[in-house]
Every structure is written in structure tokens, then in C-alpha cells.
Design a protein around this nucleic acid. Structure first.
Lengths: 340, 340
DNA sequence: TCATTTTACGGAAACGTTCTCGGTAATTAT
DNA sequence: ATAATTACCGAGAACGTTTCCGTAAAATGA
């Protein structure tokens, strides 16, 4: 039951502790035969190295902290898996914490991870511009602590980051609706206080301006992140007889909620109202009608973030590079062409 | 930039290291004033305790390993959040690993966590009866290592576990279809090799027997876990003109896939074919028609598992208790009554 | 007042590694 | 054969805590 240590092996073989240690860590001054002997007896004795001791003496934990705003949606789950795929083979362990979309919880999470001496942090902030948190993260990063930011972070902040151009793809999605022939388009946005939502609003508005859509033919309606909010907002519009030709929604959930409200009130999708989602989920291709949406590259998010972090930790390379990932606009049944 | 240690504080105050340590750990032989002095100067000097050293000297990591088969679906995400909600306030950190539904990966994950000296393990096996893994876990548990098993584990195995009676609820769901008046019912199962799938099949068959449904009026068709598999199997049935009155599906995804195939081939749901899901997801209430399903109590899963583990770790209570959680059968539009 | 108990603190070992330094034996070069 | 080099190994400090044990000072009791 007693834990076998390096010392026990040393005693048994009449070797020194240092020699046994060398046997495990290769490449040092150690004879091939003794090394093999040590390895063999270690195996026999059921030796398991104590990572805690290793960490203490090396001042390295081989732990990476990852903080995400939530992982109920597939998005961050997929990102996390990708991060693991890169980091675990390199010997790192990942500590995952979720902030429940709350900046205060986020800061707590980061501090907990720091207290646990993580070798590096990947942070997906709940919002891109929460100043108190950002100040804290920045100071730490500038003191030389490996950190990568992800997803919802302002492009202007001078740190290594991996992001998606929400404004651009929101613009693309909106223009797509315009090109499909829809004249009156409403955007059901998330919370305007979230940076990511603001960016997508800006993309929507940019498309309106560029295409000279008159103000009476578009609207931005603050909605939320979940289906029931999309449903409520749509119910409200129906109640007011304020029905657009097309809806662009902050995410697939909002879109699905809106569709539900429409169907319930005898509107046909897409004949009466076309609907477009965002941050595609697996459902998009499965519901009726199949939902047009913008797919974000979840795996690339994780892979790229992990690689940048590794570069900081292992090669001491601290570029403030910004990686902007590309999406895919999937046109499906919910946004057919009205032209001709 | 140098890390402030307990020693630095001791030097500054002309105290011994032990006294400073006592100041932080309360309740020992320490005068109130000195304690406050230590705490105050520690604060000023920006002291952060080194958890690694603490762990080494206490032989405790305050880390809990949680291994889940996957966390792409909401189910385990919700369980994980509940586990965190219980354990984090108690000072524990959670290391999450996912096995990608692969027993070998699962064993690797568990071993990685053990090597990292977790104080306890919560394991949701990919399947309930993979013998090699189970032998390993059991031996460890019987050697006094805190462990709780969750979700997909056989009731007969003598360990502390939290589970859902899949057979019972599958039986309930099937009987519900029968009572709603459906005479010909097919079950689209998961992989028969997975214990959890086998249990649900047994529940289905039990309902068939009890209600004396003739063999020509039911079928169990091995399908899979994802929507495209549900879709393919249903397409195949349609091709063979082998259409039941109701479908019972292994999970909501399979159900949604099957519904898609039906709609595509001009069958109406539920008029032509009723459909019932399982392990309810958020989508169930949002798609058209709203999907009847069985809701599993995800939060209770996590809370109960965490509590049992804490009891093992902190109170040394190792009951082999089995907690069986209750579900809820939500009847929605996809399974209306045919009677009358 | 003196013996006894309590309180508060210091010394030092322990946790299990890594790693620097120095030393000896073996090998090679001169 | 001797000197120089190399290969291999051991001693012991270091990482930052906790905790056991001993003891001086203070408090208590008679």
C-alpha cells in the first residue's frame, strides 16, 4: 500500500538517489546498463513518479488553465477537445473552468488557476472589453506569464489572440440575405453589452448602409442568447404586426426560438419569413426547414490557441500575433432566393 | 518578480517559518496579535501560497478527476457543472477528461489522473461492463482510493454509484406509446455492445412482453448515437416499406434524424409515425413537432456523485451505496393519443 | 512563593523530486 | 608509463510547505 519512491529503488539497488533520478530523465551521465536496470526494477516495484514533487523541484506544473464563458453549447466543448488534442500529447494536463457568462466568476476562475500554478492560460473572456479583468490579465501577460486570448476579445488589444471576425461574417450573412432578395430584414441581436454582440450588430448595420437599405426597412432588436428569448421577441413582433421578410439571428438558438414562434402563429418559414442563424450547431442541418447559418471553425480555434501557448511556454516566443479564423456560410432551406 | 515565500515573511518579521505557517493555518498554537501581523505583512508583500508545496507536504492535491465518455452533448456538460458547483466551494479543483466513447482512452485518462495524484475520481465509463477497465478501477477502489461511478454502470457491480434506471424508463416510455394507442412500435437502439443501450432494449422488450405485443408488431433495430444514423436507418425502413406506427429512439438525436428522413419522404410526424426520444435535450421542446422524451436529472447526477466522493475523502465513509435517480417523461406533440 | 499547567514559539525533519558540484575510476592521448 | 580526458556516480542542497517535538515564558493554582 505504501507508495514506492525513487529512494526505495535506490536502496534496493545500492545506488544513489541521483542516479536513479538520472535513469528516468535520460540523457544525463548514466551508464546504459544501470539505466536499464533501474527502469526494470522500477517497473517491478510498481513505481509511479510523484508529479507533485517533480513540479515543486522544477517549478513547473505541466498544467494549462482554460477558462471559457460556458460549455453548455457545442462551441466551446469542441474548442476544448481540440485544445486537449494538442496539449495532452505534449504532456500537459488541462484544467477547465467555466465562467457562466459572468466576468466576476471569470476573474475568480483565472485567479484560482494562477494559484494552482498553471504554466499557461487560455482565456475566452465572457466579453471583450471588461476593463478590470483585462487590466489584470494584461499586467500578468506583460510580466512574462504565457497567456493566449480567444474568441470574444477586441482586436485592438495588444496580446496574442485567436479570433473570428464577427463583424465581417455578420456583414456577409446580412448581405447574403439581401442578395437572396429580402427587402426588410430584422436582426435579433444578443445582449448589446457583450462585445461579440456589438460586433455582429455593426456588421449588420454596415451591410444596411452599404446597400442603402432605408431605416424603416431594418431593425436591430436586443434579444438574448437562448431560444426562449428568440421566441418571446418574435411573439412580440407578431403581436405588433411588425413582420419582416427575413430574420437574422445572433445564434442558432435564437433562430430556432423565433421559428417556433412563427410556426405557432401560422407563419411559414421561409415562405413568409426567412431565417438565418449564426455560430452553427449540429441542429442546423436537422431541423425543418434546415437552417442557414455561419459555421465557426471550432477545432482551429483550439488548435491555434494551444500552439501559440506552447510557443510561449517552450520556446519563449511572445509574439503579439492575432490570428483571424475563417468561417463558412452555409446556405440552406431557411433562406431561399426570392429573385425571379 | 521573485516569488514571495513563507520564509521571506519569517525573515522580515524575525519569526520562525513554523510560526508563519501556523498563522495561515489557524487553530494552532499562535498568538492572536502575531497571527494578524503575519497576515497583514503577507498581504503587503504580495504573498501567494504555493499549492504545490502544500500538496507535497500534506500528500493531498485537492484535485478531483472526472472522466466522462464525451461532453459534446449537453448531458455531461450539465453534470460537470453540477459537480463543480459542489466541489469548488470546498476547495477542490476539477480535472476533466473525456474518453471519446473509447474504453482504451478512458483507461488512459484514469491513469493520467492517478499519476497526477487526484484525491478522488468520478468515473462515467463509456460502457458499463468493459472488464479490463472495471478490474483496474475496482482494485484501486478496494485499496481505499476514493472513487464514485456514474451513469453507465451495471447495477450489479459492488461500488458506490449513481445511476439512472435505463431499463425502467425505457419500459415506461414504451408503455406510454402503447397506452397512447400505437400498435406497431420500432425501437431504434444505440450500439448493442454498449451496456446502456442493452438496458434500454431490455426495457423496450419488457413492455412488449407485458403487453403481449406480437413479434411481428415490434422490432429492435441497431442504430447508433447520432442523427445521421437515425436518418439512415429510417431511410432504409422507408425503402423497404416497413413503416411502424411509432418509433422509440435511443436519444433525441436519433429521433431527430429519423424525423428528418420521414419528413423528407413525405411522411407526417406524428400523424403517420409518432416519435419518442430519450435523454432529453434543449431541442426537444423547440423542434416541430415538439419531441416527447425522457428527461434525465443531470444536476442530481453531479451533485450526488460529488457528495458521495466528499464523504469518502473527508469522512472516510466508504459505503457501496447505489443511488438511483428518477427521470421525467415529457409527453409532447410527437406522441399524441390515438385513442378515441 | 513555588510548583504546575498553559501558551506561544523555534528547530528541524519530512514530503519526493531535480540538479549542481565534486570525485573517482576508466579510458584515451602523449 | 604518465598525463589528460571522459564516463559514471554520490553527496547534498534546493523547491515551499506542514507538523512533530521541545522549551522558555507566562499564567494559574495552592
Amino acid at each position: 500500500m505504501k507508495h514506492v519512491t525513487i529512494k526505495d529503488i535506490a536502496n534496493k539497488l545500492n545506488l544513489s538517489i541521483s542516479s536513479v533520478s538520472r535513469a528516468f530523465n535520460d540523457k544525463y551521465d548514466i551508464k546504459k546498463e544501470t539505466k536499464e536496470l533501474v527502469l526494470k526494477t522500477a517497473e517491478e516495484m510498481g513505481y509511479i513518479p510523484n508529479p507533485i514533487a517533480k513540479k515543486l523541484s522544477q517549478n513547473k506544473t505541466f498544467n494549462i488553465g482554460v477558462v471559457v464563458p460556458e460549455f453548455i453549447n457545442e462551441f466551446y466543448s469542441e474548442v476544448l477537445i481540440a485544445i486537449q488534442d494538442i496539449l495532452v500529447p505534449k504532456g500537459y494536463q488541462i484544467l477547465i473552468m467555466q465562467s457562466d457568462e459572468d466576468p466576476e466568476q471569470e476573474l475568480k476562475n483565472v485567479k484560482t488557476l494562477i494559484n494552482n500554478m498553471v504554466d499557461g492560460l487560455i482565456i475566452a473572456p465572457t466579453t471583450g472589453n471588461h476593463e478590470i479583468n483585462m487590466d489584470f490579465y494584461l499586467k500578468r501577460y506583460n510580466n512574462g506569464h504565457p497567456t493566449v486570448f480567444m474568441s470574444r476579445i477586441d482586436e485592438s488589444i495588444h496580446v496574442p489572440k485567436v479570433l473570428f471576425d464577427n463583424k465581417k461574417w455578420s456583414f456577409f450573412a446580412t448581405e447574403h440575405l439581401i442578395r437572396q432578395g429580402y427587402k426588410k430584414i430584422y436582426y435579433l441581436s444578443g445582449y448589446k453589452s457583450l462585445g461579440v454582440c456589438q460586433n455582429r450588430i455593426n456588421g449588420f448595420l454596415k451591410a444596411m448602409n452599404k446597400n442603402k437599405i432605408k431605416p424603416e426597412n431594418y431593425k436591430v432588436i436586443e434579444t438574448g442568447l437562448f431560444a426562449n428569448e428568440g421566441m418571446n421577441v418574435m411573439e412580440d413582433l407578431i403581436y405588433k404586426h411588425d413582420i419582416p421578410e427575413a430574420l437574422f439571428c445572433f445564434n442558432d438558438w435564437v433562430a430556432i426560438g423565433a421559428i417556433k414562434a412563427l410556426k405557432k402563429n401560422a407563419f411559414n418559414v421561409p415562405e413568409d419569413v426567412a431565417v438565418m442563424g449564426f455560430t452553427e450547431t449540429r441542429m442546423a442541418g436537422l431541423i425543418t426547414p434546415q437552417l442557414s447559418s455561419v459555421k465557426q471553425p471550432t477545432r482551429e480555434y483550439g488548435i491555434k490557441s494551444a500552439e501559440i501557448l506552447l510557443n510561449q511556454i517552450e520556446n519563449n516566443i511572445f509574439d503579439n500575433e492575432t490570428t483571424i479564423l475563417n468561417g463558412v456560410l452555409n446556405n440552406r432551406e431557411s433562406t431561399p432566393s426570392k429573385n425571379k
